[in-house]
């Protein structure tokens, strides 16, 4: 009964709004990845992109009354957690090795 209420509450807002918001979030994340030099910010922006996609998935799931996507989102969150730990350990190594967290410092591997 409560479940049904939540879904109908979600459905009050039209789907286009969800799409636009997710697109905006995703773009902000992408631009952050592209133009920021601080590695921590870049990692955060990647998370932002991931979560915007998650949000979109759940929105569609609610609109179609299909719970499969919600299960799927949980999997993505687990993977994202692992990915964050990996990214942060890379960050630590980076700090130790070049004493900086600026990605543009890592430009030695080129022709």
């Amino acid at each position: 009964m409560t479940e049904h209420k939540i879904i109908s509450a979600i459905q009050v807002v039209p789907i286009e709004y969800y799409i636009i918001m997710c697109f905006a979030l995703f773009s902000i994340g992408l631009l952050g990845v592209l133009f920021r030099r601080n590695t921590i910010i870049i990692l955060m922006c990647i998370e932002l992109m991931l979560n915007s996609v998650n949000l979109l998935l759940i929105a569609f799931s609610a609109y179609h009354s299909d719970p499969a996507a919600q299960v799927f989102v949980f999997f993505i969150m687990v993977v994202a957690a692992a990915e964050v730990s990996l990214g942060l350990s890379l960050l630590v190594m980076m700090k130790r090795n070049i004493n900086s967290i600026d990605v543009n410092e890592l430009n030695k591997l080129k022709w």
Binding site: L34, V103, N104, L106, N107, K108, L109
Partner: peptide, 14 residues
């Protein structure tokens, strides 16, 4: 193209 700049690679990828 291979200039070592990570942001540039990601830009191209995108």
């Amino acid at each position: 193209i291979q200039n070592g700049n990570i942001s540039f690679y990601i830009l191209l990828m995108t």
